[in-house]
Amino acid sequence: MRALASAAVVAFIVDQLSKYLVIHQMELWRVQAIDVLPPLLNFRYGENRGINFGLFSDGSDASRWVLIGLAVVICAAVLIWVRRQQLGLWPQVGAGLLIGGALANVLDRLLYGYVLDFLNMSCCGIDNPFVFNIADVFIFGGAILLVFLAPDPKDRSKKGQ
């Protein structure tokens, strides 16, 4: 569980530090756009009141609290599942990245009422209008690690026969 906790703390801190540096110190909130390595990497200011890609972003206070509650419940469920499964190092790291990223976005919703996004990536003639943040990368990467590296429960049931 130490790997899970360490990964969660690192993901949380890296996300919050990146948002502080880019949005507040580089004043992305004011300038709205900074081209870093166009078109591959740009900073674009975004306020996400929904889930991925702005889905369910009606902006109401009720939906904000529902999304906070849902994220906390999912984090708790993943933590309980990992404890029961006794997973190895990399699945624990994946769970930690997922939990740390989700809690970083929860903190944004508590502080600002929305999730701060700033990363925009385009390539190959495709202009991507969406923005995301480092926490989203950790959530996605953590989920991928869990999907591909967590043991298959069917294998465990076969061994018990």
Rank of each mutant, 00 (worst) to 15 (best):
F12N: 00
P153Q: 15
K19S: 08
Y45E: 05
V14C: 14
C123M: 15
G141T: 09
I80R: 11
Q32R: 12
E27S: 12
F140I: 14
L17N: 00
S60P: 00
D117I: 05
L116Y: 05
V72F: 07
I126D: 12
V137N: 10
S57C: 08
V137A: 11
L70Q: 08
R156C: 07
A76P: 15
V66W: 11
V73I: 12
S6I: 14
L55K: 10
Q16T: 13
Q16F: 06
A8I: 06
Y45I: 02
L89S: 07
L40T: 07
L55C: 05
D117L: 10
D152R: 14
L40P: 15
V115Q: 13
W29E: 15
V147I: 15
V9W: 04
R156K: 14
S6W: 14
D127Q: 07
W65I: 05
D108R: 10
G88D: 14
V78S: 05
G101C: 05
L149M: 11
R109T: 13
N42E: 15
L119Y: 06
A77K: 03
I134Y: 10
S122H: 01
P129M: 15
P38F: 01
M1V: 05
L87E: 13
A135I: 08
A8C: 02
F118H: 13
Y20Q: 08
V82K: 01
G142N: 08
A33F: 02
F43V: 13
C123I: 07
R49L: 02
L4R: 13
D152S: 11
Q16H: 09
G142P: 06
V22D: 14
Q161A: 04
G50C: 03
P39S: 04
L103C: 02
M26W: 14
A7I: 06
I23Y: 00
S57D: 08
V73L: 13
M121C: 08
Y114D: 07
Y112Q: 14
N105Y: 06
V22M: 06
Q16C: 10
S6K: 15
G113C: 03
I23V: 15
D136V: 13
G88E: 14
G94Y: 01
G160Y: 09
V72T: 11
S157Y: 07
F53N: 10
G94Q: 03
A76R: 02
S18I: 05
R49W: 04
V106C: 04
A5C: 13
G101M: 07
A150L: 02
G141S: 11
A143I: 03
V36H: 02
L21Y: 11
L67F: 13
A77C: 02
G142K: 09
A76C: 09
V9Q: 00
A8T: 00
M26Q: 13
R109N: 11
L37R: 01
N48I: 09
S57K: 05
V137Q: 08
I34N: 13
S122D: 08
A3E: 15
V31K: 07
G141F: 11
I51F: 05
E27I: 09
P39G: 03
I13M: 08
A5S: 09
V147H: 01
N133D: 07
A7S: 08
N48K: 09
N48R: 11
A71C: 07
D136H: 04
A8N: 00
A135Y: 00
Q25Y: 03
Y114P: 04
P91Y: 01
D127V: 11
G100A: 02
P153M: 15
G96C: 03
A3Y: 14
